[in-house]
């Protein structure tokens, strides 16, 4: 959980509330609403989840239970550059764990963490489906394939200004 104070804007709130209004009568709309909320805010802090619970008329426990069940929902903000290391089988057997280690070492944080300057966050995922390029790392929308640990410095250098 994050200790970073919530910095949502009135525009973000209006956007989320408008989305909730369009969805609230659709059965099973909690997931799409959470996904949209995460798109708007980047993460799902308590303030946002309360808005959702309120708007949809469900309990906060229900919203929180769903948001912690699925690995794509995050309760803390992510870095400006989201480093996602694929640990699917194809990547794993080709040494993705060593690539992850090298990234963790370079950035000084472990998977799930964010650098103190908020620039990088590291996450792991299960198969982005680019098995032909294993091992694969995705940074925001850029895909890096066929990586070895000593390519990590070069890969990250694109983002360290």
């Amino acid at each position: 959980m994050t200790q970073i104070p919530f910095k949502g804007t009135p525009e973000q709130e209006a956007e989320l509330k408008a989305f909730i209004e369009t969805k609230k009568h659709e059965p099973g709309c909690l997931m799409p609403v959470l996904q949209e909320a995460q798109r708007i805010y980047g993460y799902l802090p308590v303030e946002v989840q309360q808005m959702i619970a309120d708007g949809l008329g469900v309990t906060l426990a229900e919203v929180y239970g769903v948001s912690t069940f699925y690995s794509q929902f995050t309760l803390s903000p992510k870095g400006k550059y989201k480093v996602n290391v694929c640990l699917g089988t194809a990547c794993y057997v080709k040494g993705a764990d060593k690539v992850l280690e090298a990234i963790e070492k370079k950035l000084g944080i472990s998977a799930g963490g964010i650098t103190p300057d908020g620039k990088f966050s590291i996450d792991t995922c299960r198969c982005v489906g680019a098995c032909g390029l294993a091992p694969v790392v995705v940074i925001n929308d850029d895909v890096y394939g066929k990586l070895t640990p000593d390519m990590v410095d070069d890969m990250l250098s694109h983002y360290i200004d």
Binding site: V46, Q49, T59, L60, A61, E62, V63, Y64, T68, F69
Partner: peptide, 24 residues
Amino acid sequence: CDMQTVGAIGPIRRGFAKHIGSPF
């Protein structure tokens, strides 16, 4: 708690990490 429509507690996370607690 759900029958009471209070919802002060619920299941959190999944797998072995699943536990019962209050939101956040």
